[in-house]
Amino acid sequence: MLENARSGHSAGPLGMADLLAVLFGHSLRHRPEQPGWEDRDVFLLSNGHTAPVLYAAMAHTGYFPTDELMTLRRLGSRLQGHPERTALPGLENTSGPLGSGLSQGAGWAQIVRDLDGRPDRVVYVMMGDGELNEGNIWEAAMYAAKYRLGNLIGIVDRNFIQIDGDTEDVMPLGDLAGKWRTFGWHVVDIDGNDIAAIVEAVDECRRVTDQPSVILARTVPGRGVPYMEHDHTWHGRVPTSEQADIAVAALTAEGETR
């Protein structure tokens, strides 16, 4: 997709693929053939630049044909460079500018719980770790804890990279688990590329109903593509044709053994 689009972000989406596979393939209560289903759980992508992995998860669970993935970032495509809700049924929000998804998730979770009487409807918000530099996130963190939004689950892609380098050099996040706990959140710290651990973490968070939960998912940026893994320079660029072939071969080989 990204090679074809010739622009976009590579490392983040690859690292998050396992998380979205579990959510869209297992945890989310949703009906891809009926995007506005009123009983659905809600998934909000806050770090909108990782749109390719969301589009892939949606296509592979039946929201739209997988062939359409190759239209990413093209003029007239429903797959805008950053997700645009009004362009594609099934998208729950428009995102790209960082920091706003958790607030949207908090508002949504609060209405379904308090006005609709449906605390069983869960709102998931996917965030990047670089995104946690944004003050809006911490405003939302305070708000969700104040109202004890137990049906809100945040997921942080803790891959330690952002555009200008290592997250701990650019703007240190430090004791991230401690920060969220202090803000009043239930925290689960996992290997974000371990399928079983992801499933277990989501289940644990769903059982916590008196406070919001956050999953700190330690992922490997560029996961599965040896030349990309852990290299922050792959945050915002795309592979050449030759590099893409190597990446697909490596991911295919791993997929067959996993």
Binding site: S103, Q104, G105, G107, L115, N136, A140
Partner: peptide
């Protein structure tokens, strides 16, 4: 919402999405 204007409108966006 407290003194948090960015959160003010983004929480509202989520509430609007919820109908």
């Amino acid at each position: 919402v407290g003194v948090a204007e960015q959160n003010l409108v983004t929480v509202a966006s989520g509430m609007a999405a919820a109908g």
